[in-house]
Amino acid sequence: MQNTNLLAKPHYPILDGLRGVAAIMVIIFHLFEAHATSHLTQIINHGYLAVDFFFVLSGFVIGYAYNDRWEILSTKDFFKRRLIRLQPMVVMGSVIGAALFYFQGFDMFPMIHQVPVWQMLLIMLIGCTLIPVPTSMDIRGWQEMHPLNGPGWSLFFEYVGNILYALVIRHFSKTLLTILVVSSGIFLLHTAVTSPHGDIVGGWSLTAEQLHIGFARLLYPFFVGLLLQKITKPSNLNNGFLWCSLLIIAVLAFPRIGGDKYLWLNGLYDAGSIIIFLPIIVWLGASSTLSGKKTSQICKFLGNISYPIYITHYPLIYIYTGWVVQHKLTISQTWPYALLVIVTAISIAYACLKWYDEPIRKWMTKKWITQ
């Protein structure tokens, strides 16, 4: 019988809560994105950096959960545990994306009405495995590696980070890991400041350019999270969840800088946020203690729904975006519906969590881990 005590290690409740805050900011970012004429006019301008924040969190939490357990944990068992944690909601995200595919505006997504059901179902099944599809198999027109559920790209890179950690990085000393972090930070900085768009946005397409951006966004955040877990010391910050929530909201909502003339300035902001500010927020959150039962309940709720929100909300965004573009609507005209999207996304996430994700993970754990 395998050791089930590996599952009993306590969480960082503030980090769980911050993950939920960032996930909700992602929804808000995507809603405003539907109304933006370009990245220059986007409100909640840097909401895309939530993905990089998730990567930092992931590296930190995985290091905390597994670094001291490899003497009793096999690589196979590690991958089983990661599949149990991540894959059920990947499947649900793909299924929801398929269910809502034909409800999206044809003016925004002209390819949709030409896609036969069998082809959509094939893409859904591939999406359930998280295997990326090439642009030649795109059925939407956005060249996404997961056309039914765009955010699947970040889960693809999440798995890449997990594989690198389990097979290679867990063996690294602090010195070697530090060298890797510095090198990947330079790679990230160069990618951001030389971007033709003036930002680090990208990673969702199976092309050389997009893969370059995706790996730049994965490597430094994930590795710095691992390093941070090894060297972090308590900061004793009072009201840590509140202050860290305000900090992550500020980073993600910060206005675009540099305009269309000095694009590199915004790239510098992106790189600085990922390299400096996001790790500091994770460190502060991990070093703080919760104050009060209500805050603890909020953090638990936000942490529980954070991943389901992130991986299931985007099919709603496709519909909202298609509707906004087709009718040329402004946010002042659609804000009640935008609020409805947020409430619906949270409701779907919670329903998926309680009626699907938790039962499925419990069943998979019993079948895969305890036998």
Score class of each variant (00 low, 15 high):
residue 2 Q to A: 10
residue 4 T to N: 09
residue 6 L to S: 00
residue 11 H to I: 14
residue 16 D to K: 02
residue 17 G to L: 11
residue 18 L to Y: 05
residue 21 V to K: 03
residue 31 L to R: 02
residue 31 L to C: 12
residue 36 A to V: 06
residue 45 N to L: 03
residue 51 V to D: 11
residue 52 D to Q: 11
residue 57 L to W: 05
residue 59 G to Q: 08
residue 59 G to Y: 10
residue 60 F to R: 05
residue 62 I to P: 02
residue 66 Y to I: 00
residue 66 Y to D: 01
residue 66 Y to G: 00
residue 67 N to C: 04
residue 70 W to R: 00
residue 70 W to E: 01
residue 73 L to I: 02
residue 73 L to P: 04
residue 83 L to T: 10
residue 90 V to W: 08
residue 94 S to R: 07
residue 98 A to P: 11
residue 105 G to D: 06
residue 106 F to R: 09
residue 111 M to N: 11
residue 115 V to N: 07
residue 119 Q to N: 13
residue 119 Q to H: 12
residue 121 L to G: 06
residue 127 G to N: 12
residue 127 G to P: 15
residue 127 G to W: 15
residue 129 T to L: 15
residue 145 M to E: 09
residue 161 G to T: 11
residue 161 G to L: 12
residue 168 V to R: 01
residue 180 L to F: 15
residue 192 A to E: 09
residue 194 T to P: 03
residue 195 S to G: 05
residue 199 D to H: 11
residue 205 S to V: 08
residue 207 T to H: 07
residue 209 E to Q: 12
residue 210 Q to I: 05
residue 210 Q to C: 07
residue 212 H to C: 03
residue 216 A to N: 05
residue 218 L to V: 11
residue 222 F to I: 07
residue 231 I to N: 06
residue 232 T to W: 13
residue 236 N to I: 00
residue 236 N to W: 10
residue 237 L to F: 13
residue 237 L to V: 14
residue 241 F to E: 09
residue 243 W to M: 04
residue 243 W to K: 08
residue 249 I to A: 08
residue 250 A to M: 12
residue 251 V to Q: 02
residue 252 L to F: 14
residue 254 F to Q: 04
residue 255 P to E: 03
residue 257 I to Y: 02
residue 264 W to A: 06
residue 265 L to G: 00
residue 270 D to G: 03
residue 272 G to W: 13
residue 273 S to E: 04
residue 274 I to A: 04
residue 276 I to P: 02
residue 282 V to K: 02
residue 289 T to E: 15
residue 289 T to M: 11
residue 292 G to V: 03
residue 302 L to W: 06
residue 305 I to T: 10
residue 310 Y to S: 05
residue 311 I to P: 09
residue 314 Y to D: 14
residue 315 P to M: 08
residue 319 I to R: 05
residue 319 I to Q: 11
residue 323 W to M: 11
residue 338 A to G: 13
residue 341 V to Q: 09
residue 347 S to Y: 08
residue 355 W to A: 01
residue 358 E to P: 00
residue 365 T to M: 09
residue 365 T to D: 00
residue 365 T to S: 12
residue 369 I to T: 04
residue 370 T to D: 06
